[in-house]
Design a protein around this nucleic acid. Structure first.
Lengths: 161, 161
DNA sequence: CATCGGAATGTTATACTATTACGCCCTTGC
DNA sequence: GCAAGGGCGTAATAGTATAACATTCCGATG
């Protein structure tokens, strides 16, 4: 299952993207008085560098290229920190992690995932967020820092079906 | 992570529940000319017996109690069949499986999952389904046999936060 | 200065989840 | 009979995640 990072046509300034995410993270961590250590920052960069969800062991390999090898717990701990800070989401359907644009409260990440080819698209839909929030709260759930994964068939995969 | 199957107060006729699910499955498989073998039926029963999502290896253990031991592939194959038939959903957030009430097309299972304690509640919300379907189709996704997982904090876990 | 304590990371081993690859048996249709 | 395919058994292994313990660093405190 290789990452088809060239799949989408849109090319954007990815370095800028990463830099922006990291400096926002630095600002946020300073404000909250938690420390964005070099390791954590490195993991955040790696997560942002590809625009697609990335597996923990891929991150591990990436770090291993430049540093002494580290073990899985090191990466998982960094990811846990980043998730708690709202800087990263875990995509359960892919066992993978992806950067979050809006580490601020009240945002719910929404992912559309093709059940067949695993392609992922992020949604940003206020109406949907509102609907989900209402429904959730009616059932005794609070939605801060929530995440939604929607599994469906993408058009490409639906062709011959 | 043990299954707190006694958590919810509501007691209902579970045997009846299982029986109904199985006979609906039989009917469906006959109609579609696929075979609900004894093993597959057994897995389906086990999935339905607890009302909560159950892990593949738990199913494995359950089968092992009554039969000669079988290996993981046996269980995963049965689960794959049941998923394709729409009789079972996989809950990615839990690496677990749960029976589906509506194996018919067009239904989208929706699960609310507490990010902290992993408690699960199934939602049935036509409006939400419609909103999701619209949004998905606008982005090139078809929603048949879809599933939605919503991760949020349940009230119990939100108390001290 | 000494040292205590906590946070972060390193290290080893292991648990848990899932799949690959191969072989057997049985049924169905020729 | 026997070829073909479906379903299952079995062994090995891949992929994902965590437990448990050791180490290092650094700031606070006496």
């Amino acid at each position: 299952m290789s990452k088809a990072s060239g799949r989408s046509g849109r090319r954007h300034d990815h370095d800028g993207c990463v830099r922006r995410a990291v400096s926002a993270a630095e600002e946020l961590c300073t404000r909250r008085q938690v420390s964005l250590t070099p390791l954590r920052k490195r993991v955040l960069e790696i997560v942002w560098r590809g625009h697609e969800p990335i597996g923990a062991y891929e991150i591990l390999a990436e770090i291993g290229k430049a540093r002494e090898k580290v073990g899985p717990p090191t990466v998982y701990r960094a990811l846990e920190f980043l998730q708690n800070a709202g800087l990263v989401h875990r995509v359960d359907a892919l066992n993978a992690f992806v950067g979050c644009d809006h580490p601020d409260e009240g945002h719910a990440a929404q992912f559309l995932i093709c059940s067949k080819c695993r392609r992922v698209t992020e949604i940003e839909d206020a109406g949907l967020t509102r609907a989900l929030r209402e429904r959730a709260s009616a059932l005794g759930f609070r939605f801060e820092r929530g995440a939604v994964e929607i599994k469906a068939l993408c058009d490409d995969c639906a062709v011959g079906v």
